[in-house]
Amino acid sequence: MIKVKKLYHSYTKDENYAVKDISFEVKRGEIFGFLGPSGAGKSTTQKILIGLLELQKGQVNINGHDIKTPKDELFNIIGVSFEAPNVYKKLSGLENLNFYKKMFSVKTQDSMELLRMVGLEEAAHKKAGGYSKGMLQRLVFARSMINNPKIWFLDEPTAGLDPNTTSDIKKIIKKKNDEGTTIFLTTHNMYIAEELCDRVAFINEGEIELIDSPRNLKLKYGKKLIKVEYKEERKLKKESFSMIKDTDKEKLNGLINTGKIETMHSQEATLEEIFINVTGRGLK
Rank of each mutant, 00 (worst) to 15 (best):
D246E: 15
I31N: 03
F153M: 07
K171T: 10
E229N: 15
E194L: 06
Q137K: 15
E195H: 07
I67C: 02
K3F: 07
Y100E: 07
E207N: 13
S167H: 15
K127R: 06
L7D: 08
E272Q: 12
I22A: 04
L97D: 05
I203L: 03
L91K: 02
V87W: 02
Y191A: 12
N76C: 04
P37T: 12
L35I: 04
S167T: 12
V278H: 04
L49H: 02
Y131S: 09
D66N: 08
G36H: 10
A123M: 07
G41I: 06
K220V: 08
G130T: 01
S213M: 07
L196G: 04
K235W: 03
D110L: 06
I77L: 06
K218N: 06
L52N: 11
T247N: 12
E232V: 03
A123P: 02
D246W: 04
M112C: 00
E122M: 13
M243N: 09
N189C: 11
K223V: 09
G254T: 14
E272H: 12
I169R: 02
N204M: 01
E156H: 09
Y221Q: 08
Q267L: 08
Y88L: 10
R215H: 14
F82W: 11
D155P: 02
E30I: 08
G160E: 12
A40W: 03
I67P: 00
K6V: 03
K170E: 11
K238Y: 09
I151H: 00
E122N: 15
D21V: 04
L55A: 06
N148R: 09
I183C: 03
E233C: 08
S167C: 12
A84I: 15
P37W: 07
K175N: 11
K238M: 12
S43G: 09
K238G: 11
A201W: 00
T108D: 10
L217T: 08
G119D: 11
E95Q: 15
E233Y: 09
Y88F: 15
R215A: 09
P149Q: 05
T263A: 11
E156R: 15
N204H: 13
C197K: 00
T263M: 10
K227V: 11
K176E: 05
L219A: 09
P70D: 00
E95N: 05
L52H: 09
F34R: 04
V4A: 05
N98L: 14
G129M: 07
A18M: 08
P163M: 13
M264D: 08
T108M: 10
G39W: 07
G36A: 08
E179S: 14
K245S: 05
K5Q: 10
M264L: 14
N216F: 13
M117P: 07
T166W: 07
E30Y: 02
F184K: 02
N204G: 01
K5N: 15
G58T: 08
I146G: 05
I48L: 11
E25A: 10
V228S: 01
I22Q: 01
I169G: 06
I226N: 06
F241D: 02
I226W: 00
